[in-house]
Nucleic acid binder design. Structure first.
Lengths: 205, 205
DNA sequence: ATAAAATCGGGGCGCTCGTTCCGCTTAGGA
DNA sequence: TCCTAAGCGGAACGAGCGCCCCGATTTTAT
């Protein structure tokens, strides 16, 4: 591992930064399916330039998702430090709002053709640890029911992002948040056992 | 509109039925993105045969989604007739389970590149009416909070399907259902006002 | 200023997929 | 049985996209 990180030429560094920024915005708007040519066009460079800095489209996408995850972890930790009981709720609703603005991130989470844990094991691990922590904090503070774990929270994030994306309208979304919040609160009476569990079959074709 | 529905030749009718059945299963497994060639192969016919019966891939997909919607409406009405207070819950959890088995339907609902209301206005209308009815029934029975409308229910369906798809494991899903159910119940104490509303911004790239 | 090295851009290759076309096959009435 | 038109399959076309290549251009050390 004799690192010889020859310093990037000035124009190359500029282009690389520009591509990253533009890819960031473009993946957010259009999702992971957007053609590289489109990103190149918006960045004012050729497709070849994109590929010199990032060997594949996938690697560019990963770089951006990793950065996003880091931001979210940092932001959430700050929120939870300020108010441990509310940290988890702040996180959940922030994630939902990301669903409205960042299609790429939503796809990375929902895992349609993108395995987060396999592609970015470190970032995924840190993210999961953060969720585990703020969930435990909230449960200790008594604001969240104790029978949930980090995997349940991740599931809720996927659901919230899907809902938020479905409803471009953020006003209407305010009607659904309270439902989720009420559901996450510590129940003060024994739960009615869940009926049916949805395993009854529909007739087929 | 001089209908002259010349009766299909026997082999043609057989092929048409086979294509429909196979397409049904294939869209469910692979989603709307599956190539027509794959459906043709599974049905044991040529691609040309598929296109003779359905002018475009889109029209084939629509035919199947319309059928699915009809089944669901029928099934749900029966459930609600048997137990008005539980009808909505049966519907919601059934929809979630569909998320696990029918990718095509999930995509049709979530509306990624498929506008249900525009493509199948009649089926969509009947579906929405059904939801409105069973929601009203449940609210009258006192099992669901009164401050929700059919659009909110549709949003929840999208979220539940995304979650169910994310979690291939149905056991774990049993942990999330109770949360949703608790959230939908009539609150017995005034709601804490939703904090923050998630509009704080994350730093960008 | 000058030349070597790094970088650029965009045309092109290979592949996938929706849709069409057409020569061959087969159902089914006379 | 025979004829005709409905039906069939799969080769082929065109569009979109990831990725590569190479002659032209720009940076930077001397």
């Amino acid at each position: 591992m004799t690192e010889k990180p020859r310093p990037l030429r000035a124009d190359a560094a500029r282009n690389r930064a520009r591509v990253l920024q533009v890819a960031y915005e473009t993946f957010a708007e259009e999702g992971a399916g957007v053609p590289i040519d489109e990103i190149a066009r918006r960045a004012g460079v050729g497709a070849g330039t994109v590929y010199r800095h990032f060997p594949t489209k996938e690697s560019l996408f990963q770089a951006i998702v990793a950065d996003r995850l880091r931001q979210i972890v940092e932001w959430t930790r700050a929120q939870a430090a300020a108010d441990p009981g509310e940290g988890l709720y702040a996180f959940l609703f922030q994630m939902a709002e990301q669903g409205a603005t960042d299609l790429g991130l939503t796809e990375a989470f929902a895992g349609s053709g993108f395995d987060l844990a396999a592609a970015l094991p470190d970032a995924e691990k840190e993210f999961t640890e953060m969720m585990t922590e703020i969930l435990a904090q909230a449960q200790r503070a008594g604001t969240v029911r104790p029978d949930l774990d980090a995997a349940d929270i991740k599931t809720l994030v996927v659901g919230l992002q899907a809902m938020r994306r479905f409803r471009g309208d953020s006003d209407l979304m305010r009607r659904v948040y309270p439902v989720i919040r009420a559901g996450l609160a510590v129940p003060d009476s024994p739960e009615p056992s869940t009926r049916g569990s949805g395993t009854e079959r529909l007739g087929s074709a």
